[in-house]
Computed example of a mutant assay.
Amino acid sequence: MSSLEMGRLLQDKTLNDEPHAGAAKQLNDLGISGLMTLEAIEFQTLELDAVLASCQQLQDSYAQRKAGLPSELQICLHGSATSTEQLAVLVQLIQSAPQALWSLRDDSFNCYEMDFRLAALQQHLAILKPLNKKLAPFVNTNALGSISSLQSIQCCLDNAGMFRWFSAKWRKAKQQALILAANEQLKLDDIQLLFPAMIKYVDTQVRFNELFAQAPILSTSHQGLHTDVAPLLAVREWYKDVEFALAEHFASETGILQGLSVIEKQSADKLVSEFNASLVTTIKHIDKQMNKLRLSFPGYQALQLGDVDYVTAVTELKTIIVNELCVLKESGVESNTCLSEL
C-alpha cells in the first residue's frame, strides 16, 4: 500500500472518529432527510415543542377524567396511539348501550346460553298469548292449577260412562271443572272441550317461568304475558358487540368488560359528552401532528409503537435531536450544512 493510500485511510478514520460523525449518524438513523440543514432540523424542534404541548395538555385532561372511571377502563386514557383508538371504541360501546343495560348488566348476558333462553321466551310467548286469548273468555287462566290436576280432571270426565252421575269421583271432577269457568252460564261440555288447550297453556307457562329461574337477572323483566323481550335482546346484542370489540381492540386487556359492568351511568354519560365535545377534536389534532412526525422521523421506532405514550415518545425524540445538534455545533459544523455532507 502506498503512503498516499495510507494517508487517505488515516484521514477517513480520523473523520469517522470525530464526535460529529456519531451525531450525524444518530440523526440519519432517525430518518431525517440528508437534504435537511442543521438549521432546518433545529427548526423542527420547535414543531416538537408544539406537539409536546398538545400531548401534555391531553394527558393532563386524561388525568382529571381518570378519577371518575373504574381502574379497568383507565387504560383507555394512557395517551398513546393504541389507547386513543381504544378510547374511541369505549365511547362507541357506551353510546350504543341500550337503556335497559344499566339495570341488566350481568355476566349471564355474556354467554351464548342467553341466546337460547331469549329465543325460548319468545317462542313461549308466541304460544301463551293466542292461548290466553282463546281461553280467557271461558276460564280463569290465573287459577288453572297444575298440569297434573288438569290431566286428572280431564281423564275422569273423558272416561266416565253412562252411569257417571252415580260416581262421586266424576261429580267431584265436574265441580272442579266448573270452578274453572269464567262465568256461571258455561256448561260442562264447553269447559271439557278446553282441557287440551288449558293443559298446553299451563305446561308452556311452567316452562316460561323456569327460564327466569335459570337466569335471576331476567326476573326484573318478568311481566307474565306482557313481558317485553325486546330490551333483553338488545342487551344481549350489546354484549356480543362488546365481545367483538374486546377481541379486536383490547386483546391484551382482560378487565374492560368488568369496567363496563361497574361504571356508573352518570360517569359513562359524562365521558361520552366530554369526548364528543372536546376530546375528539384534541385527539384528531394530535393524530395529525404525530402522523407528520412519523413522516419526518421514520427511523424513530418509538413513534411507530402504538403502546408508547405520546409525551414520552416526543420528549425522547426531542432530547436526541437537541443533544446531537449540540455535538455538531460544538464540533464547528455550520448551521447551513446539509446532513448528507457530514
Rank of each mutant, 00 (worst) to 15 (best):
W102I: 13
A81I: 03
Q99W: 01
Q175F: 00
P196R: 13
E184P: 03
Q11D: 11
S103R: 12
L257P: 01
N16R: 14
A313T: 04
N183P: 01
L128G: 09
S54Q: 10
T281G: 00
L233D: 09
T14C: 02
L188F: 08
I32L: 15
L339K: 12
D269V: 11
M1R: 04
L178Y: 10
G34R: 07
Q64M: 11
K169C: 04
Q258T: 10
N159C: 12
D29V: 02
L35D: 15
E210D: 15
C76R: 06
V202G: 08
D49W: 04
L101C: 04
A67M: 15
S331N: 08
E274D: 11
M36W: 01
L4K: 10
L38A: 03
A53M: 05
Q176A: 14
R294Y: 00
S273I: 07
L193K: 15
V202C: 06
L178M: 15
I286E: 05
D228T: 00
D269F: 02
L73N: 05
Q223C: 13
Y112N: 06
I94T: 14
M114E: 09
L303N: 02
L188S: 05
S149D: 10
Q301K: 05
K133A: 10
R65Y: 12
R207W: 07
Y62T: 08
A215H: 09
N140A: 09
D158W: 03
Q95F: 03
K284P: 00
E253P: 02
H226L: 13
V314F: 06
Q57H: 12
T14G: 04
A230Q: 09
W102N: 13
L180E: 07
K13H: 04
L305C: 07
Q214M: 04
D49C: 02
Q123L: 10
V262L: 00
S335I: 08
H222S: 10
K187S: 15
L27P: 08
A268M: 03
Q74T: 14
P216V: 11
K318P: 05
A181Y: 06
F250P: 08
G306R: 09
I191L: 12
R65F: 09
A23P: 08
L150R: 10
K318C: 00
F109P: 06
T141K: 05
H124I: 01
G22V: 01
A23H: 06
A23D: 07
M162W: 03
A302M: 08
C55A: 15
Q122T: 09
Q92D: 13
L293M: 13
L194S: 11
L131H: 05
Y300I: 01
K329M: 02
V333I: 13
L339S: 12
L4P: 02
L150K: 03
S152W: 01
I147L: 03
C338G: 11
N276G: 07
F244D: 15
S261R: 07
I179C: 11
A268V: 02
V308L: 08
